[in-house]
């Protein structure tokens, strides 16, 4: 299977601060990839590197087999909906579609028109007068109608109210089903991604914490609850993601390929949200305890 995004030791430095480092991932095609992490974790940096708006400080990145900054042909293959879904406030909806048609050789005018009509947007309306949700939909329409092989969305729903959020994600999923494109979208909320993504990347502290198909991730991660125990005494194939202790009890979230035999443990399924939170907190164990105790 071909990779939509292949990064090797990718890093980006702003001045003295690393926004992203040692990022090595290989995302196969045909997935809806959720990129999740706290604010400032490097999500936007990774997406901008993939979109060719940034050049890496270290390492290499290829998107759909080509370097992201290689020119118009590459740009045509990748759609990008930027954070806060910017549009030209002074241009009307129709003019935005015209912009898309003028600037993209593969523009699907009929699709764009239909989608705007279905959304109930007035083509003569200026984009500056649209609501946040409508503007996001317009930006998504532009991203979709250029018929990319990969669509990248940077926090597309962060500024939207819950209803607009759901409509946006529904619209996106319909388009994905219709056009068979790969999608990478970022969010700092797992709930945005839970229903839509089948591949997940957790980014925290400017590093990739884990990446994989959601199904595999859920199958290999377990919550172990039992008598208090030191994490070092777990079997070697059980990687501790997070640990929480009370006086008598220990709770671990572990990753393991193999089965868990120790009868002392109560093995529990974890949700995607638990998993993401466990990885997001990995660097700061001191803050982890209260979060786990709340879950208990």
């Amino acid at each position: 299977m071909t990779s939509v995004l292949l990064a090797q030791g990718l890093g980006k430095k702003y001045g003295k601060r690393w926004a992203l480092r040692e990022c090595t991932i290989d995302i196969p095609a045909g997935h809806v990839v959720g990129l999740v992490g706290p604010n400032g974790a490097g999500k936007t940096t990774l997406l901008k590197l993939a979109g060719g708006q940034l050049t890496p400080t270290t390492g290499s990145i290829t998107v759909l087999g080509g370097p992201p900054t290689s020119g118009p042909a590459q740009l045509a293959k990748v759609g990008f909906v930027a954070q806060d879904t910017p549009t030209y406030a002074g241009l009307t909806v129709a003019e935005h579609l015209r912009l898309g048609a003028r600037l993209n050789p593969g523009w699907d005018a009929a699709f764009a028109r239909d989608r705007i009509e279905r959304l109930g947007l007035d083509p003569a309306q200026r984009a500056g007068k649209l609501s946040g949700g409508q503007r996001a939909q317009l930006a998504l329409t532009l991203g979709l109608a250029k018929r990319p092989e990969l669509l990248i969305l940077d926090e597309p729903v962060a500024a939207l109210d819950p209803l607009a959020r759901r409509e946006f994600m529904q619209g996106l999923m319909e388009a994905v089903a219709e056009h068979e494109l790969s999608v990478v979208l970022s969010s700092h909320l797992v709930s945005d991604l839970e229903r839509t993504c089948d591949y997940l990347i957790v980014l925290a502290g400017s590093r990739v914490q884990i990446a994989g198909e959601v199904e595999d991730l859920l199958a290999t991660h377990h919550r172990l609850t039992g008598p208090r125990r030191d994490p070092d005494r777990l079997p070697a194939d059980q990687h501790v993601v997070s640990a929480g202790h009370t006086d008598r009890q220990s709770t671990f979230i572990i990753r393991t390929e193999g089965p868990i035999h120790d009868p002392a443990w109560t093995v529990g399924q974890i949700t995607l949200e638990d998993l993401v939170l466990a990885y997001m907190d990995e660097r700061t164990p001191a803050h982890r305890r209260p979060a786990l105790e709340v879950q208990r």
Binding site: Q53, L75, A82, P86, G106
Partner: peptide, 16 residues
């Protein structure tokens, strides 16, 4: 306004 991110992601290089 951030619109450079909109226009740079059409199929036109930013140099052009």
């Amino acid at each position: 306004a951030g619109t450079h991110l909109l226009v740079w992601n059409q199929s036109v290089t930013r140099t052009r």
